[in-house]
Simulated assay, not measured.
Amino acid sequence: MRGLLVDHVHTVEIPLFNAYCKSCHETISYWPEFVLPYQCEPLETHEQVAVEHLEGCSIRESAAEIGYDPRTLSRWLRRIFDQAKILLGKAVSRILYLIGTEQLPLPSMTVDEVAALLFAWLHRLAEVTGFSRRRRLMGLCNLIGNGDWDLWGAPVGKARSRMDCAPAPG
């Protein structure tokens, strides 16, 4: 069981499941798409802060709205934007493959522009596929990743990256 802050005040316990791989001697945790490892807030909260920031809302305003320290939100934004820069090419390629469009060249951009572009592509994928949760686009990105890249928005912590590794057996 793990506590999840549903409204920045109240915690709900949710079950998490683990599996053990006998051949590689690894324990694997299965997380719901709306939960980030090492975080007590849902992914939707992180995405809300990122989208508001890209729409011009200050970090202090967002922090006051949800009752968090602005430094916490700054860490979230730095992590999200740094990861967006890494994920953009992979995620856009996967989105274009899923919606049947050819590959487009990506110009050099700032991290804010990269994150905004990635959100725009995810929004387009959500429209095409009928994905109804438009404030869960980071979760959609993690789902289309099929485990090929690390969770967008999640701190690495003590976990090892799954990127560029062979899939776990079993």
Rank of each mutant, 00 (worst) to 15 (best):
M1A: 09
G3T: 11
L5E: 01
H10S: 13
E13V: 14
E13G: 02
E13Q: 12
F17N: 10
S23Y: 12
S23H: 08
T27W: 10
S29L: 15
Y30G: 10
P32K: 02
Y38A: 09
C40P: 06
E41T: 15
L43N: 01
E44Q: 09
E44N: 03
Q48P: 00
Q48C: 05
V49R: 04
H53V: 00
I59P: 12
I59F: 02
R60Y: 08
S62R: 08
A63N: 04
D69Y: 11
D69E: 12
P70C: 07
T72Q: 10
S74M: 14
I80W: 02
F81E: 04
F81D: 01
F81R: 12
K85A: 10
L88M: 05
L88S: 03
A91W: 00
V92G: 01
S93G: 04
R94A: 14
L96Y: 00
L96N: 02
Q103D: 06
Q103G: 04
L104H: 14
P105G: 11
P105I: 12
L106Q: 08
P107F: 05
S108W: 15
S108T: 14
D112G: 00
V114G: 00
L117G: 04
F119P: 00
A120H: 10
A120R: 14
W121F: 08
R124V: 07
R124Q: 02
L125E: 13
R133Q: 09
G139T: 09
L140H: 07
I144P: 05
G145P: 00
N146E: 14
G147N: 08
W149Y: 15
W149K: 04
D150I: 10
L151V: 08
W152L: 13
G153R: 03
V156Q: 15
K158G: 11
K158L: 15
A159V: 13
D164I: 14
D164L: 15
C165V: 13
A166C: 05
G170W: 12
G170D: 01
